[in-house]
């Protein structure tokens, strides 16, 4: 029970990186499948497809960033973990949740929008910007969740 606080903080970091990462993997996968469908008919569209496929990948990076911040803050990265209470551990865990949950769902939805964008450029190759813009709008909420998690993790006092 001595390390419960640290355990909860690391669990939060794992959720941030894990859920956001899984969401991104699913999102990128959906766009990849749609992209492969288009490329099998028109290989010259690779560049355009790649841009759309990258978009849902950012949530995974946001989750990783928050997890890294937690590791630095708790001293896990330097190999000298700071002592913390279970209440502090829960606070870190809660701070990680916005990016974990919003990252997971927004990446999947962004993947669906980006895959629809692939269908759009399949018929109208010049409309890439519109497909990108629509997919990027979903990103807004992942960015907001990243900010919330970032501010929260940054302002929790440990030790």
């Amino acid at each position: 029970m001595d390390n419960l606080g640290l355990f909860l903080a690391i669990l939060g970091a794992a959720c941030a990186a894990g859920f956001a990462g899984v969401g991104s993997a699913k999102g990128v996968g959906i766009v990849g499948e749609a992209g492969a469908g288009l490329l099998s008919e028109d290989p010259s569209m690779f560049g355009r497809v790649l841009i759309l496929q990258i978009l849902p990948g950012t949530q995974g990076l946001y989750g990783f960033l928050i997890a890294l911040m937690v590791f630095i803050k708790t001293g896990v990265l330097s190999g000298a973990p700071v002592a913390m209470t279970w209440q502090q551990g829960i606070a870190v865990f809660a701070a990680c949740m916005p990016i974990a949950l919003v990252g997971f769902f927004s990446a999947i939805y962004q993947g669906r929008v980006a895959a629809s964008g692939v269908s759009l450029i399949a018929k109208k190759p010049t409309e890439l910007t519109k497909g990108m813009t629509m997919a990027a709008l979903v990103e807004t909420y992942a960015v907001l969740a990243l900010l919330v998690s970032f501010i929260a993790v940054n302002n929790i006092t440990l030790g």
Binding site: I30, V31, E33, A34, G35, A36, G37, L38, S40, E41, D42, R112, A115, V118, S119, L120, A122, K123
Partner: peptide
């Protein structure tokens, strides 16, 4: 429905023709 992502994109590319 997302299992059809490949299929739908390929069909959309063919709709051009």
């Amino acid at each position: 429905d997302t299992d059809y992502a490949f299929c739908v994109a390929r069909l959309r590319a063919n709709e051009k023709y």
